[in-house]
Nucleic acid binder design. Structure first.
Lengths: 363, 363
DNA sequence: CTGAAAGCGCTAACAA
DNA sequence: TTGTTAGCGCTTTCAG
């Protein structure tokens, strides 16, 4: 019996179920059953029901999600962990994240975001992230090595998008990057381009590697062997695209200008565009350009690109994750897929044209 | 005493403090003091400390954030509520959000995102959002009327960014939009443009209204009276910019083409750019263009624009919010500012030039 | 220096 | 149909 002789430790935020019950002359659990749909065995009489509702209204009762989470062992919140560079905003993130939020809302889940400084140190923080505030976690484009993968938390359902290596027990979502890159490069080759420079993403990213593979395969199919120095790596940002290309051009001054550029991401493509513009080179008249991802950047720059269904990946990741959370909760042993792969497609743009008839030299 | 004769209701997620205490031969609260820094009055002997640490390691103890939140009455999580259109991604959101996440991480707060379908209905959901999962909430660009403002929750600290009206008890963060718009339009007028079309944001947005005010003031200072139909409203998206301008041009076919366009956002400017391009008009040779916000879109389109310190607004909002949460928690009565205003600045771009010597007619 | 006990607000099992 | 009781895992007050 709550004698309530001692003063409350803190200011009360709102009325509790016990308050409502007292006000309505019923038990807290009757109030719980009516207000929060707790599936207690018994039903409440219509009369009591009305009294409870009225009392809740009068007391401005608001359910306390933490208390419920503690009792139920479930928070109805999912997490998204990713790295967000301080210097440059990430379109890729925005697109995927939008999909995540949409789907999460549909599934009745909240979404909390964890911005890791980087994956090297960030990976260690993942177990700490899974501290009961979230029921499951989406790893967005994680760059983990096998060793780090061992330290992933075991009791929290995990899903990854564009993981760079197989993560034990984690369902990975991705798209057909290799064939997307292949199609892109093939298209450029069909236009007549022979020397295509690939300005790719980080070497440790599986997606970046697959784009290189697609690039190579498209060449190989035509019996063309791209020069070894025509594949370069940076990271996926505008700034990296700008600098990486500029450096490459400096190192190759006096040599013939590549006829086309295949960038590892739209952001990289945009950086390349800036470098080319700064050098007075016209796209696509002097040099063709393609990106990868089909983010809003591609649209704003009228960039030909390869579409990855980023938002859809976000949707699927959430559904998969919620399915796994539910499965765990029910104690089900349904087996989860290791990976889900969605198709990519070519997106036309204004940055693609046949090669110049008169080759240019790098200034 | 936990006789633990009954089986656990659910699978245990992890070891608890009680488990650790038992393993180390101390009480749960000793473990709590050592592992979670609970400021219990007493100190623990070094020897006990080591045993507890070892036991925690052995049992792979992970603190449970919900339990702690329930006990402490604080979740260390802040919320961000905004509308996210299904059709089009929002650069503005991304920039502010990045700032929010950064600052939240620095303050040791998690960030959870609430995507409302729209502010009309969404406003009603705000009290439900404040259900104990978050300690405070940032309203991002809320479009609320006075009536809706009355229903904001009272017990949760609230901060808004770019609110469209004064919200009681809510600190609003914004930037000098009026003077930013004024400077932008003045710059265009100085270049010699006389007829400047303003393609603005939603009429109910205070920010949009302020940009119109700046536009008018710049004209008034030069004794120019812009035509009434040279200020049009849409929403802040690319698509809206594209369509709004297209419609306007159709309605004004045969009349002289405006010499310059001042868009209410970078997204709108981008949409305008698409419409102009589609009509074969060159920017800035045939018509000048300025945006507003300085998002990544402006960079990718080489757009002259007005910089709002969006990321900084995110930072400040978080700090302000955390300050208010702390104040409430301490029971302090420190008074919070009603509003915080940050400066804007002009950003040059490639979309600005003097007017054509030979005026064009709208096709 | 350490432990026992109460309670945060809610849900679920078990009696009545 | 309803009430009682016992937790969920943690923190804190108060005795030892």
């Amino acid at each position: 019996m709550n004698t309530s002789s001692s003063p409350p430790r803190r200011m009360r935020h709102a009325a509790t179920l016990a308050d409502v019950g007292r006000e309505a002359g019923v038990s807290a659990m009757a109030a719980s059953a009516v207000l929060n749909g707790a599936r207690t065995s018994a039903r409440i009489s219509e009369e009591a029901r009305q009294r409870i509702l009225a009392a809740a209204e009068r007391l401005r009762y608001r359910p306390n999600a933490t208390a419920r989470a503690l009792a139920e062992g479930r928070m109805n919140t999912i997490g998204v962990a990713t790295t967000l560079s301080r210097n440059e905003l990430n379109q890729y993130f925005l697109e995927v994240f939008n999909g995540v939020i949409e789907a999460a809302a549909e599934e009745g889940q909240n979404t909390t975001v964890y911005a890791l400084p980087d994956w090297r140190d960030g990976a260690k923080r993942i177990p700490a992230i899974c501290d009961g505030r979230i029921d499951g976690l989406i790893l967005l484009a994680p760059l983990l090595d096998r060793e780090a993968a061992q330290h992933l938390p075991e009791h929290t359902p995990l899903v990854s998008i564009h993981a760079n290596c197989e993560l034990p027990g984690v369902t990975n979502l991705e798209s057909e990057e290799e064939s997307g890159a292949h199609a892109a490069v093939k298209q450029m080759l069909s236009l007549g381009h022979q020397r295509i420079l690939h300005v790719g993403g980080p070497i440790e990213s599986l997606g970046a590697a697959r784009r290189v593979t697609g690039y190579r395969r498209a060449h190989a199919e035509l019996g063309i062997k791209p020069a070894a120095d025509h594949v370069i790596h940076g990271d996926f940002t505008v700034e990296s695209g700008r600098r990486t290309l500029e450096h490459w051009l400096r190192r190759h001054a006096g040599e013939p200008l590549p006829q086309a550029l295949f960038a590892g991401s739209d952001a990289i493509a945009l950086g390349c565009l800036e470098t080319l513009r700064a050098r007075g080179l016209r796209v696509p008249d002097d040099i063709s350009l393609m990106g990868f991802d089909d983010t809003l950047l591609a649209r704003s720059a009228h960039l030909a690109t390869v579409r990855q269904p980023l938002r859809e990946l976000g949707h699927r990741a959430v559904r998969m994750l919620v399915w796994r959370i539910d499965a765990k909760w029910r104690g089900s042993n349904d087996i989860a897929p290791t990976s889900i792969v969605l198709p990519t497609e070519l997106v036309p743009g204004a940055t693609l044209a046949p090669p110049r008839t008169t080759p240019l030299t790098i200034a």
